Amino acid sequence: MLSRATAEGEPSLLYVMKQVELAVRAELDELARPAGLTALQYTALTVLERHPNLTSAQLARNSFVTAQAMADMVAALQERELIERHRDEQDRRRLVLALTPQGRRLLRRLRDQVAALEDRMLAGLTDHQIMQLRASLLSCRAALSGHLPH
């Protein structure tokens, strides 16, 4: 097994991953700005697209923001009629969030630009390397969340 220690003079993987995250977020901000969105708002909308009917707290966890930041974001997205709040059909006491048709249209409009950003980020990798990168990142996420395979 390779040493996990960073070679002298090389940045740590954590540092490199943070640099990639910040670069992607800056690019997403540029893509989303003409639509009146931030990268974080775009992320929240894509989370709701994949997982409809989340509570605000669940959406915050899945969008990597605090509950307070999500409350402000939900208000802004509701005001623009991109998301709606309604009673959960399984538990009528819970209020959940979902995309509106307008929110779905906005995501469709941005989809090709976001895909082009991902393609640009991965341009130096082969298809096999991309599959390995995805698997490796998913393994890292699982390890940090305590869900290591046995």
Rank of each mutant, 00 (worst) to 15 (best):
L117V: 03
T100F: 11
P11W: 04
R92T: 08
N53M: 13
L48F: 04
H147Q: 13
S136W: 14
R93T: 15
T6A: 11
S12C: 07
L106M: 13
L13Y: 11
Q113K: 06
R87F: 08
I83F: 04
A5H: 09
L54G: 01
P34K: 03
A57R: 11
R111I: 10
N53D: 14
M17R: 11
L14A: 05
P52L: 13
E79C: 05
M73G: 00
R94A: 09
Q78V: 08
A116S: 06
L95N: 07
R108Y: 13
L97V: 02
G36H: 04
E89A: 15
T46H: 02
M1P: 05
D29E: 09
S56Q: 15
E8A: 01
D119Y: 05
L99K: 03
G103I: 14
S136M: 07
Q41C: 01
L59D: 02
L22I: 09
D119R: 07
D91S: 12
L54Y: 03
Q132A: 06
A5R: 13
S56C: 03
T55W: 04
L22D: 14
Y42K: 02
S145G: 05
L28G: 00
A123P: 03
L138D: 14
L95I: 15
A39K: 00
F64E: 14
A39V: 10
M1D: 05
G124Q: 09
S3F: 04
G146F: 03
E10G: 02
G124M: 12
L54P: 01
S139M: 11
V20T: 12
R25S: 06
G9P: 02
S136P: 00
L82M: 06
H128E: 15
L48T: 02
E118K: 12
H147W: 11
A76I: 08
V114P: 04
M1Q: 05
R50S: 08
P149T: 11
V74C: 08
L40V: 15
R105P: 04
A75M: 10
R61N: 15
M121S: 07
Q68T: 15
G9K: 01
L59H: 04
L40F: 13
L54I: 06
Q129N: 07
R50H: 14
S136V: 09
Q41R: 07
A7V: 10
L37Q: 03
S56V: 02
D112T: 10
V74A: 08
A143Q: 12
P101A: 09
P52R: 12
A123R: 12
M131W: 15
E8V: 06
R104Y: 10
A57E: 15
H86W: 09
A26P: 01
T38D: 01
E49V: 06
A26E: 13
R134H: 13
A116L: 07
R87V: 14
Q19S: 04
L45P: 00
S3R: 05
K18A: 11
R134L: 10
Q102W: 10
L22R: 07
S145F: 08
I83G: 02
A26V: 10
N62K: 12
Q90I: 06
R61Y: 15
R61E: 15
L31Y: 09
R87K: 12
M1R: 10
L77A: 04
I130C: 06
E8N: 04
V24D: 00
L37G: 01
L138I: 11
R61G: 08
E10Q: 14
E27I: 00
